[in-house]
Amino acid sequence: MTWLKLSFQNSNSPLMEQLIFFHDHTIFIIIMIMSTITYMMLFIMNNKFINIKISENQMIEFIWTTTPPIILIFIAMPSLHLLYLMDEIKCPILTIKIFGHQWFWSYEYSDFSNIEFESYMMNDLNKENFRLIEVDNKTIIPFKFNIRLLISSDDVIHSWTIPSLAIKIDAIPGRMNQINLFMNRPGMYFGQCSEICGINHSFMPIQIESINLNKFIYWIKNF
């Protein structure tokens, strides 16, 4: 176990970087409020004097009514900004369709050729594999490009998630949900189904292999 597990995974997309900044910003505000309140409570509890100026004090009433909304504005503005940024789709070069099934994911790349495959959790345990998170057919996606993901389901609601890319989107039967994906660097990125979908909900992981465009084209040609 490393300390990394207490916090977010390393970010791999501009959006996740911004979300981590937003998280740190909000936590900073929360700590400031918590420490001020704790200090005030301890101070009042340990104080035997009763301040005569505390009742009918218009000024202090005014301040403690107006400051919370102002603090909330400082949280709400970046939050809304990020919320709408996550919905944005920016001229994609590729569309990948993802379908949730009980209990595996299937992928379709149908812009140029008809690539379809299913990805199941890898069952054989050896020293090279990560337990319960590795799949047999990895999703190959080029990095530094905007990719459109369309997520749907064949049976019940699933949720397709990659924490290091700030993607979590429900797979709903009969509906195509769209999200933008942009990766900064090559590597393997993992995720798990995030909507309870039946007995094997924990055993349908997601694995993305991020590679450069030339290797991706090579993979397409040799599929």
Binding site: I93, L94, T95, D111, N214, Y218
Partner: peptide, 14 residues
């Protein structure tokens, strides 16, 4: 956005 690499044309619905 259309991109052509190694004879493969990367083009999708806008």
């Amino acid at each position: 956005m259309v991109l052509e690499v190694d004879g493969v044309k990367l083009e999708t619905a806008p």
